[in-house]
């Protein structure tokens, strides 16, 4: 499967759906995304009165999950704008529910029955996308490449995109989850060298961290081992939950397994931002738990007068 080219009906204005985890704990992702997208000519409109996409309570009550997702979709319909989310969980949920509600009349009528009490009605007129999809479809690799001012040559990096970017394939309808290309291509556009590693597409385990604290850490630890073995100097994520597993929990994993990784974990917009010549401060690199100084000085080493951070 090839990465989709910029689609003819691409847009430059999106409603930003922040979700829950990003404003709660992962603001560095939001800060860097806003900087990078503005430079790429994308206008983000704040989404007023949004609510949780619904995914966290899907295990409790599927019907409420659909209703919560539908309410968000209706708010966007009222504004006539497509949604962009930074969290793949939110994107996947909104995309799946949007598709189901468009296809299934019975479900649509039932959900609209609930929504009626809030003055809303699902019509099916907008799309929801994850940041990756916006980058490859609405901006396009060529336009991103044009904005790269400081190619990250000599840097080896790899990815952990996160399951919900493309799974379940039927519903999310983005790229082939068994052989994903979007994030790989986006990393290579920055000039960095992309390295592959064992079990790259495997889950980090984050969704069950609230139920079991051992298995997710074992999963994440194994991936960190593979990333290190592959010689990657940094791991790139596009999901707040995956990021918490690899970055926030990395010191804990190191203590637990008596190992040392020291692998910086950057949000993709931070990597792209560095290549676009934003400063580490502008991209909130100090918001990361694992110190990325080593790789940043590798990029910035040659340039005198760079502010310390």
């Amino acid at each position: 499967m090839t990465t989709p080219k910029k689609s003819p009906n691409s847009s430059s204005k999106f409603l930003l759906f922040l979700g829950c985890a990003i404003p709660y704990r992962v603001t560095s992702y939001e800060i860097s995304t806003r900087k990078v997208l503005a430079k790429l000519g994308i206008t983000l409109i704040e989404m007023t009165e949004y609510n949780c996409c619904g995914l966290p309570i899907d295990p409790v009550n599927h019907e409420m999950m659909v209703a919560l997702a539908a309410r968000n979709l209706c708010l966007a319909e009222k504004q006539g704008l497509n949604i962009v989310t930074l969290c793949p969980g939110c994107a996947g949920t909104l995309r799946k529910v949007n598709k189901k509600l468009k296809q299934n009349k019975e479900l649509r009528e039932r959900i609209n029955g609930y929504l009626k009490e809030t003055g809303l009605e699902f019509k099916g007129t907008i799309e929801a996308k994850h940041l990756l999809q916006l980058l490859v479809e609405d901006i396009g690799l060529e336009r991103i490449k044009d904005k790269v001012k400081r190619p990250l040559t000599n840097m080896n990096v790899t990815e952990h995109a996160g399951c919900h970017v493309s799974r379940p394939a039927d519903g999310v309808d983005f790229e082939n989850p068994e052989d994903p290309e979007a994030l790989k291509n986006l990393i290579e556009v920055t000039g960095a060298k992309y390295v592959d590693y064992t079990d790259k597409i495997a889950c980090c385990g984050a969704p069950i961290a609230g139920v079991n604290d051992r298995i997710p850490l074992q999963l994440t630890r194994e991936k960190l081992v593979h990333v290190k073995e592959a010689g990657a100097q940094a791991l790139i994520t596009v999901c707040p939950f995956c990021h918490m597993m690899f970055d926030t929990n990395q010191p804990r994993i190191e203590r637990m397994f008596n190992e040392s990784f020291k692998t910086p974990v950057l949000h993709y917009p931070q990597l792209l931002g560095l290549a676009m010549d934003f400063s580490p401060e502008e991209l909130d690199l100090k918001g990361l738990r694992v110190d990325p100084t080593k790789i940043v000085s590798q990029i910035h080493g040659a340039k005198k007068g760079d502010s310390k951070w």
Binding site: D58, C163, R167, C203, G205, V211
Partner: peptide
């Protein structure tokens, strides 16, 4: 039952 991470690998 509560250990599924909903990664959807099985579904795919």
């Amino acid at each position: 039952l509560w250990l599924c991470a909903a990664c959807f690998t099985c579904t795919d």
